[in-house]
Design a protein around this nucleic acid. Structure first.
Lengths: 193, 193
DNA sequence: CGAGGCCTTGACCGCGGTCAATGCCCGTGG
DNA sequence: CCACGGGCATTGACCGCGGTCAAGGCCTCG
């Protein structure tokens, strides 16, 4: 219970032992089954999820009913719909579980309180935001500048574990292409080896 | 000199009068001419630019020499290459001026010092990061999900002033299409009115 | 007036989308 | 244990959006 989060706070965030217990008291654990919904469009997102075990996804559904995956979140990742969490707007996105998962759940108020308790936590929170920005910017760059094949090659390079754990049509959705196209891209790559 | 930044800090960031002078002392003003470079690829970005007057752009150049515009920054916008500024990596991007511009320049250390001085400044800095994330996420969403025409319609809706101030091939670059395609999109839109 | 930057247009083409058929894997129930 | 069905990956045929290349027109500015 909360061990993953505990170790993460201690070894990555470098929260001092003196503050760890106090911070841990403020979060709760949630276990969800595969396909369970954690956020629906139209609702205000109140939570950040830390994945201790399992795999979540953040995605949109467009007018024609197609899903577009914005982000995956495997072990030791944080996932939220920040536009809704921070600004209090109804979310345009969905979050659900792709595997049975064990999550640590907290809200925006927790972030502020933990930031007051621990300067290391405050700094790490900023690091997360900055890192998120870097990540989104790289993704925009490759969506604008690169074709489907090089986007896929970059993806399997960056997230080899994810490729193993989700169906290919979800990878295609993340890359902004159809499953059929991804299948052809993979065939082409296999031919050249 | 610094009036734009002063008013911004006072009226948007809500920095208390007691702190304004101290914070303003720590930034400098820079005037640049159209086409002047402010950041080159390979260099580490040390600055954030606040645009008092004029217009900047952040862009990449791909292997085949094509420019891809990541962001425009008109009056009262902040622009930086955060991946480089915060993480200290060499930048993959360029920044230059699209018009003669008057800028307020500061660095990461300034942000930290000003955050210690003024809690309003600290909160606004977080607001900027959160807002940036929201913006990038929306852009990814429309790059994945929408065709050239609807991306253009969304752009002129969100940034009507920018459309007036930059050549169309730069708008095309921002949208991830060619100038020729944008021209056709605009013709189609005109036909239906 | 000439030159260069920008926008437009046309012809052509290729990447990736759509639709439909097939095959594979695997879980479920007869 | 086998039969069936559903979810997913692959393949083929076809097509359309958007890219490429080239030409022409319209500005502005020297």
């Amino acid at each position: 219970m909360k061990e993953g989060f505990y170790h993460y706070l201690r070894d990555r965030v470098f929260v001092r032992s003196a503050h760890l217990a106090e911070i841990l008291k403020m979060v709760s654990v949630k276990k969800v089954k595969k396909n369970e919904m954690l956020l629906m469009r139209g609702l205000i997102c109140r939570n950040v999820f830390f994945v201790e075990k399992g795999l979540l996804r953040l995605y949109a559904i467009d007018e024609s009913g197609k899903e577009h995956i914005i982000q995956f979140a495997p072990e030791n990742w944080f996932l939220s719909e920040r536009a809704s969490l921070y600004f209090g707007n109804p979310s345009e996105y969905f979050i659900d579980a792709l595997e049975d998962s064990s999550l640590v759940v907290f809200d925006q108020e927790f972030i502020e309180r933990a930031s007051d308790i621990s300067v290391e936590f405050r700094n790490y929170n900023e690091y997360l935001l900055q890192n998120h920005i870097r990540h989104l910017q790289n993704r925009i760059h490759s969506l604008i500048g690169a074709d489907a094949k090089s986007r896929y090659l970059k993806f399997i390079d960056l997230y080899p574990e994810i490729v193993q754990r989700v169906p290919q049509w979800m990878v295609a959705s993340y890359l902004g292409i159809t499953p059929e196209s991804l299948s052809r891209v993979r065939r082409d790559i296999a031919l050249f080896k």
